[in-house]
Computed example of a mutant assay.
Amino acid sequence: MRQLVTLNAVKRIIHADLAGTYSLETLARAVGIHEQKLMKLFRRHEQSTVFAYIRQARMQYARTLLEQGSTPVENIAALVGFSSAANFATAFKAHTGLTPRQYRRQHQETTQSEHAPTG
């Protein structure tokens, strides 16, 4: 139980500032455990490393922002911790198979077709 409380505390820190830069040492110190223990917690409960979890959280938030449709890709890149829109686009495409603009367009087309009148 204590492990899940610690894990959730780290997740809250990460989600509170997805653009932040985190070291394993900083996160471990913030919740009062050793770095190795933090790594084991993530492997056991998230089946990933701390940094893979952060990357996943950033990409999920980026997808949400792209789906909302109004935030420029350059701003989304900054909000999820990328120094440039080009680096973000490369990482996003590696993660989803689509560029951010392609993802947004595909989502908008899917949403429009779901709400189109049938008849």
Rank of each mutant, 00 (worst) to 15 (best):
M1W: 06
V5Y: 07
V5H: 06
T6F: 05
L7A: 09
N8E: 12
K11E: 09
K11P: 00
R12N: 13
I13C: 05
I14G: 07
D17C: 08
D17S: 09
A19V: 00
G20A: 15
G20P: 00
T26K: 12
A28N: 03
A28L: 06
V31T: 07
G32T: 06
G32E: 06
G32A: 07
G32Y: 10
I33T: 11
E35D: 12
E35Y: 04
M39V: 09
M39F: 10
L41Y: 12
L41E: 05
H45Q: 10
T49H: 06
T49I: 06
V50N: 02
V50E: 01
V50G: 02
A52V: 08
A52K: 13
Y53T: 03
R55T: 05
Q56I: 03
Q56M: 05
A57Q: 08
M59K: 04
M59P: 04
M59H: 09
Q60I: 11
R63D: 02
T64N: 06
T64Y: 10
T64E: 15
L65E: 11
Q68V: 06
S70Y: 14
T71D: 08
P72A: 10
V73A: 04
I76W: 01
I76G: 01
F82K: 00
A86G: 06
A86M: 09
A89E: 07
T90W: 08
T90G: 02
K93M: 12
H95D: 11
L98Y: 15
Q102I: 05
Y103A: 04
R104L: 06
R104W: 03
R104K: 15
R105I: 11
H107W: 14
Q108M: 15
Q108A: 15
E109K: 15
T110C: 03
T111N: 11
S113K: 15
E114P: 00
E114H: 13
E114W: 12
H115F: 14
A116N: 13
P117R: 14
T118I: 14
